[in-house]
Amino acid sequence: MGAAQVVRIESESEAINMEGWSKERTLLRKLVKEEGTKVADVARELGDSRSLVSLYINGKYAENEELREKVRNYLRRVGMWEDESTRENAAPFDPIVSSDELPFVETNDVKRMRYVLKKAATKLKFGIIAGDPGLGKTETLKKYIAANPGTAIYIRCKSTHTVKSLLQELADALGLPDTGSANQLTRRIVKQLKRTPYFLIFDEADLLKTADKYEALRDIYDEAGNIGVALVGNLALAEMFLDFAEMRPELKRLADRAPFHQRLQGPTREEVEQLIERVNLTPPARKLMIQIALNPRKGGLRNCVEILDVLLDMTKGQPITEEMVLDIGQINLNANA
């Protein structure tokens, strides 16, 4: 059903008669002209050229069912389209009021991580997982440990770790005394692991940086002979052990023991939409939250969740606007700069 109205384009040099326009064309024009969505962004989402989209929203490009379907699907994704049958049969929208209610989405990255963790643990090898900050690596590790109780030891690496302090932390996690030299700690840890094997998970392992710390972990792995080890961190970890290890023999020794590895790709738009499906966001705010989650330079998925945590606490289920997302997002980025 069309919208019978006449509007003027920006130059006011001609009038556009929208009588008989499809719902798809009318809503897409509104999204661009009234809500500020860029034609280039629409074109990228539709897989068409900017000139085609511009002609289409100005009524100068003939419609066909294939184009209308692409536009409908895009409008659904940005919250601008609601089917009549869906509206009649849908349950009332029940917005969440706390970030604790956000679902844990089984993203492709979660599956990639789970694959490496399972293989490294069962095949008794090193596994390496690397990805941008904010992709949910630590949360996925927590889920894995909860699903495999009593089988794994989790260590969060720090930039201040020395070889000895890293070994002390591992000894403490194993319930062992953390006194003595690095060699004594290593012997104590190996002896314990031979008695009771654990899967060792080192989160933020890129912060260890120097080869002597990775060599200490390789020594424990080699001497115990019955454990798997996972190194999880930012992309610097992949550069060290997957890209440039050939040039550094001390790193290649560990890389040769790591047949299971994954570089994380970040969430897809569909995965982010699943995450925020029950958040009461206005269409522009929803679009902005998706942009934040998909862009590591804007903090990625982690920043998206942190912003929602603040805004859900503020709004208690009331609508969240684009301005609110911008305000809290800027504060959050400055705080983490």
Rank of each mutant, 00 (worst) to 15 (best):
T268N: 07
D222T: 07
G225H: 11
M240A: 08
A230E: 01
N226T: 05
V232L: 04
H261T: 13
Y221K: 00
R248E: 11
P267T: 03
L237I: 09
L254M: 09
P249Q: 09
R253C: 03
R248P: 09
R269S: 07
P259I: 05
E270Q: 14
A236M: 07
A245G: 04
D222F: 04
D219G: 04
L251D: 08
M240D: 10
T268E: 11
A258E: 11
G266P: 05
T268Y: 02
H261R: 05
R263S: 10
L217W: 03
Y221M: 05
G233S: 07
F260P: 15
A236T: 12
M240H: 09
A245H: 13
L235Y: 12
I220C: 01
G225S: 11
D219F: 05
D243R: 15
R257V: 04
Y221Q: 04
L242W: 11
Q262I: 14
A238K: 11
P267A: 10
D219H: 06
E271R: 13
L237G: 03
L217F: 00
D219S: 07
G228Y: 07
P267G: 03
L251N: 10
R257K: 12
R269F: 13
D243F: 12
R248V: 14
V229S: 02
A224V: 00
I227A: 07
A224L: 02
L235S: 10
L237R: 05
L235V: 11
L264T: 00
D256F: 14
E223H: 06
F241M: 09
L242P: 10
D219C: 03
A238V: 00
V229T: 02
K252R: 10
T268W: 05
E250W: 03
P249T: 01
D222K: 00
T268D: 06
A255W: 08
G225Q: 12
M247V: 14
E223K: 06
E246R: 13
A224G: 01
P259R: 14
N226M: 12
Q262P: 10
M240N: 11
